[in-house]
Design a protein around this nucleic acid. Structure first.
Lengths: 345, 345
DNA sequence: AGTGTGCCCGTAAACGTTTCCAATCCGTCC
DNA sequence: GGACGGATTGGAAACGTTTACGGGCACACT
């Protein structure tokens, strides 16, 4: 049933070694022979057995991608970037998601062992010390948004602190004195950094920090909704909300609308990530722009760089990159000017 | 560097055959021996080489997923369903996307040959005759939303015709006489079926069909925006719009808002798919509900069914399933009652 | 004519598993 | 006491490639 390299060799009247060399262009083969082999392969509809190939060559042609989730605009866009770059580099993608707990990550990682030539790991919830021993050392790994700071692995992060600071400073520049933050999950690296940016902005502006203005959340729209409800119950009521990601901002927007609170007149609002639908809410959302797609593309780019086409991982200094996050002003913060009326969907 | 089954065997003082049997529980091994082997494996941090394993066992433990895109709420939710079911079945996921052209699909399919135990293929844009010869015959394949109707492969579809018909009939029940449709891409199976449903509803209600009410689109929000603009230029102006998917409906909503047209008072609107944000637009969107996540889960479910745990594909009659699509009434169609105020995101 | 030099090509050894088959062991039964 | 039978175990073949190594061959040069 299955046609092997032997069948091709027999049909072309050569040895398997020659077939291999011809098909992979990995050695000298006379032009005429090569044509004969290629024709034989085509006629037999031959496809090399990738298991056998990677058994001996120790390369699989696949990259592993480990994400906390696949759902939502952020991950959707992230994957898109990852996928594009992987295709461009000639790699297939082995994806695995829904991993927050360290044990799940470990299991997923173990499952990928030996199956991939490189790995993109996004695990903002697990600590450096526990993550590190789980990561394979024989293939290159790129860490996305991970607290792992030592130079053992390539790492790619977003300037969460700077972005959050900018957003909050923008809010403060409108004269808001009481700015609440809807926080991300506890022990999540991105969330912690954004919170830190919030505090930095407050301190820099000389605005007093208040515990009660830091409202728990978990990056879901639902938690944003509840967070905004909590804000509305406060007295005195804050006049601005910084949601640590856009999904929570959308939830908050929903809650504010349901409560009949006008945004931005009665409550200013800003988010983080700049997912695409920030442009189409009412009002459009002021947020910190992150080049999400590029984040994904860059991650596999680093991997592809680390993998020299023919051989295994090549030793080279670890990379550490940080993508900028800059405030993009729309209407939800109370600015009337820029990007006011969204055009198109 | 890499530890093999031989190392484990030596350390445990047994043969590789016994190690294999012990670790896979694939044959009788004395309890005490098994413990010794497991301990040795643990100490050496042994992980079986999956290439070697799948070379001999002819199983890879991976499922291939071929999609036209990864982006957007629909695919995001679809993947989520696929991923969940794959994990439940103990399979890894090899994904590939951005394929509309037949040649791209063929290339992606060739790349997956031999790497996967089964395949989920969504290719609504390619014709049956073209698609069929590209599909592998040695592994089970589940077709998603594909026009391929003969019984050669398992197939899973959504009741596009019925769903569209229901939505349009609902619109007509409000007394609308001129209902425009924003069509999906040409030659897209889902789009064609939804168009057919629209026509069926019109015919059933005795409403005359008009060419100019069928407006081209491509399932993107942008095209929905332009489509709605086109509708607004018509004279006499239609009083209702059925967008062939939610993304286009969102675009249309945006256009109507920009034009100052009140929805649903001046223009009723409905979509298709019931992605999650239909609940949070203003007004909430009437649409045809599709269990997207379940669609994905069901697809890999069919695959897993076809793959008996130990061996290769097992011969069995081809499945053909159709998931229902039923209208869910919110406010954009002019009904005031049901699901009016969205609670939480 | 002999000899080096390159180009082509074939032989065979890996790669790390799984699995068939035969061998061994140990207790039981006649 | 020896045969028998089931539970364990080991040996070795197979899976389909890639690749080191060496053999032929044509050609040019001495």
């Amino acid at each position: 049933m299955t046609v092997t390299i032997w069948d091709v060799a027999r049909r072309a009247g050569v040895s398997v070694a020659t077939v291999s060399r011809a098909l992979n262009r990995s050695g000298p083969v006379r032009e005429e022979t090569r044509r004969r082999i290629e024709q034989a392969a085509r006629e037999l509809n031959y496809a090399p057995n990738s298991a056998a190939r990677s058994l001996i060559s120790r390369r699989t042609g696949m990259l592993g991608v480990l994400l906390p989730d696949l759902f939502g605009e952020f991950f959707s866009e992230l994957i898109r970037g990852i996928d594009g770059a992987a295709q461009a580099g000639g790699y297939h993608l082995l994806v695995s998601s829904s991993h927050d707990a360290a044990s799940e990550i470990e299991a997923a990682l173990r499952g990928m062992r030996g199956r991939v030539d490189g790995l993109v790991v996004m695990a903002p919830m697990v600590e450096a010390g526990v993550l590190k021993p789980m990561l394979p050392r024989n293939v290159p790994v790129v860490l996305l948004s991970s607290p792992l700071a030592d130079g053992a692995f390539d790492a790619l992060t977003v300037d969460n602190h700077g972005g959050a600071r900018q957003v909050v400073e923008h809010l403060l520049s409108h004269g808001h004195e009481r700015v609440a933050i809807l926080k991300g999950p506890e022990r999540n690296h991105d969330a912690e950094e954004r919170l830190r940016g919030y505090r930095t902005a407050l301190a820099a502006a000389g605005v007093p920090w208040r515990q009660e203005l830091e409202i728990p959340g978990d990056f879901t729209g639902e938690s944003g909704y509840r967070g905004a409800e909590a804000v509305l119950r406060m007295d005195p009521r804050p006049t601005a909300i910084f949601a640590a990601n856009d999904a929570m901002a959308f939830g908050a927007l929903s809650a504010l609308r349901d409560a009949g609170i006008a945004v931005p007149e009665e409550m200013a609002l800003a988010g983080f990530d700049d997912v695409s639908s920030t442009r189409y809410t009412i009002p459009p959302l002021t947020t910190a722009h992150v080049a999400i797609r590029e984040l994904g593309a860059r991650a596999v780019g680093m991997l592809v760089d680390a993998l020299v086409p023919g051989a295994g991982p090549r030793p080279r200094p670890r990379q550490r990159e940080t993508l900028p996050a800059t405030v993009v002003v729309r209407r939800s913060c109370g600015c009337t000017g820029a990007e006011g009326g969204a055009r198109g969907p």
